[in-house]
């Protein structure tokens, strides 16, 4: 019986907007992700999908409910965020973000950024860290030469791959990809997804992919939830949901997807 990587029980998140009224971003959400699984979270804007995964990462505080990452309560880890020793254990969730252009400090080259992570997380010497970082970047297809250019000169797809290398260099147990392909040209999207899936296979990583694009979820995940207005509207096996959805909302989403007429090229 595999362990539960993520166990969310009746999670609610409420924000106070700058105008003073309350926004219920997440309402009574419960879900489970098995270790080593690739899990999808689908929703449109305002569905709460990004807030949900930020709670998993420990970036956002839950208002109500319980979230456990490999048995550890996320709230406990959050409070210890400030203390170094605990931090190293608690932050076993890493993220790849939607906007590749603000994912990297413009003043650090990819090599510098990843080297720093390796040094902190793997406690290697400066030279070994650099070598390990260069290797990690090669694995995602960024040559050592390119990794020494400032982010300004890299394309969206390359930046996203650097973000992935940085996240993986921290040896996470769970990787969250928040709309990883939305800001990238179509001809490069499949590559990012392939790298993400490769990481599951090679490292036994658990991956949570957030996307509004049902095709992305269909290609990568085995289980998924559909969110609307902060609630889970449908949950289950990806194949099932995408071919025989039970919720009317899911049905509407599927019907709105363009371009289902042409066949794939043989």
């Amino acid at each position: 019986m595999t362990e539960l990587a993520v166990e969310v029980t009746d999670l609610s998140v409420r924000f106070k907007s700058s105008r003073g009224h309350f926004v219920d971003a997440v309402r009574h959400v419960s879900l489970e992700v098995q270790a080593g699984e690739v899990f999808g979270v689908v929703g449109e804007s305002g569905s709460g999908k990004s807030t949900l995964v930020r709670v998993l990462a420990g970036l956002v505080k839950p208002t109500d409910g319980k979230v456990q990452i490999f048995g550890h309560d996320v709230n406990e880890s959050r409070r210890l965020f400030g203390r170094r020793s605990q931090r190293l254990n608690a932050s076993n969730v890493q993220m790849v973000f939607q906007d590749p252009y603000s994912s990297l400090n413009p003043y650090l080259t990819p090599l510098q950024a990843v080297t720093e992570v390796v040094r902190i997380r793997q406690r290697l010497s400066r030279r070994d860290s650099r070598e390990a970082a260069a290797a990690a970047l090669e694995e995602v297809g960024i040559s050592k030469a390119r990794a020494q250019h400032k982010p300004l000169s890299l394309s969206g797809g390359q930046l996203q791959r650097v973000s992935l290398a940085r996240a993986l260099a921290a040896n996470p147990e769970i990787l969250i990809a928040d709309e990883p392909t939305s800001a990238i040209d179509q001809s490069m999207q499949a590559r990012i997804l392939e790298l993400l899936l490769g990481a599951t296979r090679d490292r036994g990583l658990t991956i949570v992919i957030v996307s509004h694009d049902l095709a992305v979820i269909g290609h990568t995940t085995s289980k998924m939830v559909v969110m609307k207005a902060g609630e889970v509207v449908e949950a289950g096996a990806t194949d099932e949901i995408l071919t025989r959805p039970s919720a009317a909302y899911t049905q509407r989403l599927l019907e709105a997807v363009p371009g289902r007429r042409s066949r794939p090229l043989g």
Binding site: Q186, L193, D213, G218, H219, P264, L265
Partner: peptide, 26 residues
């Protein structure tokens, strides 16, 4: 054009194949 068409992720397809992306960048 052929590469672009092949790189499309479609509902109903499951596998990511290696022909689905182009190396490098435009």
């Amino acid at each position: 054009t052929q590469a672009l068409q092949s790189s499309r992720l479609r509902l109903g397809d499951k596998k990511l194949t290696s022909g689905m992306w182009l190396p490098g960048a435009p």
